[in-house]
């Protein structure tokens, strides 16, 4: 190889290296979750980093989950409810702002169905199995046992299930029957008196096939 050809080769290598440095912008692929999809109130799917979202579509169970918020609406995560289905249970023993009296689970179900949250008017309390299916190890100390990135305002507390008429532990002397709840701090299932104030996360079976829903095309925003 001659001096000239070696010089050209050196320059070529340098040019390739500089071009690689200048034009190799890092690629950022937006990941997808194997089970959950964020859904807006008008039934549009969002990517994992988009928001705000109001429901989560659970591909595994074909369910829509209500997403709690921090906005003092009826879906605020701080509100608590006694267990009541309109006939059984104990009405108006929870704590919320949106009712003149106190709140029970039927109040939230009624209001959510009236508003057709995420296109559904069939919101209900989840079964114990449905609730327990959400339990997962938190990735930070002190966080609830749930995917907090999809369910951000879930508290370290009890969440009512639909299962009622269950026997209560002997420590509850006044009441004999209550409803099943799942505690997302301890990841345990427990029975509580109907009048207890616990949290609620509603669930619905989608009324339209969600696979037909369109993804929203908008700039990605942070959470």
């Amino acid at each position: 190889m001659t001096v000239a050809s070696r010089l050209i080769l050196s320059l070529a290598i340098a040019t390739v290296a500089i071009s690689y440095l200048l034009f190799s912008a890092p690629e950022r692929e937006i990941p997808t979750h194997a089970r959950f999809i964020k859904v807006t109130n008008d039934m549009q799917f969002l990517s994992v980093w988009q928001g705000p979202w109001h429901c989560v579509y659970d591909k595994k169970l074909n369910l829509l989950w209500e997403v709690k918020r921090d906005d003092e609406s009826i879906h605020d995560g701080y509100w608590s409810y006694s267990w009541y289905d309109g006939q059984f249970g104990h009405a108006d023993q929870g704590d919320c702002y949106f009712e003149a009296s106190h709140c029970d689970s039927q109040d939230l179900i009624r209001k959510t169905n009236q508003a057709s949250l995420c296109g559904s008017a069939e919101w209900r309390l989840p079964t114990p199995d449905e609730l327990r299916s959400l339990i997962q190890t938190p990735n930070s100390p002190g966080k609830p046992h749930i995917a907090s990135d999809f369910f951000p305002h879930i508290k370290n507390g009890d969440y009512w299930s639909s299962e009622a008429g269950v026997s209560l532990p002997k420590s509850f002397k006044r009441e004999k029957l209550g409803a099943t709840a799942v505690n997302f701090q301890s990841a345990e299932t427990l029975s509580l008196p109907y009048e207890n104030a616990a949290f609620v996360m509603l669930v619905a079976t989608p009324s339209t096939p969600l696979s037909l829903a369109q993804s929203r095309v908008e700039p990605v925003t942070l959470n």
Partner: peptide
């Protein structure tokens, strides 16, 4: 390093 929460951008 904590496990990755896909729904969080940071």
């Amino acid at each position: 390093p904590q496990s990755v929460a896909l729904g969080q951008r940071r």
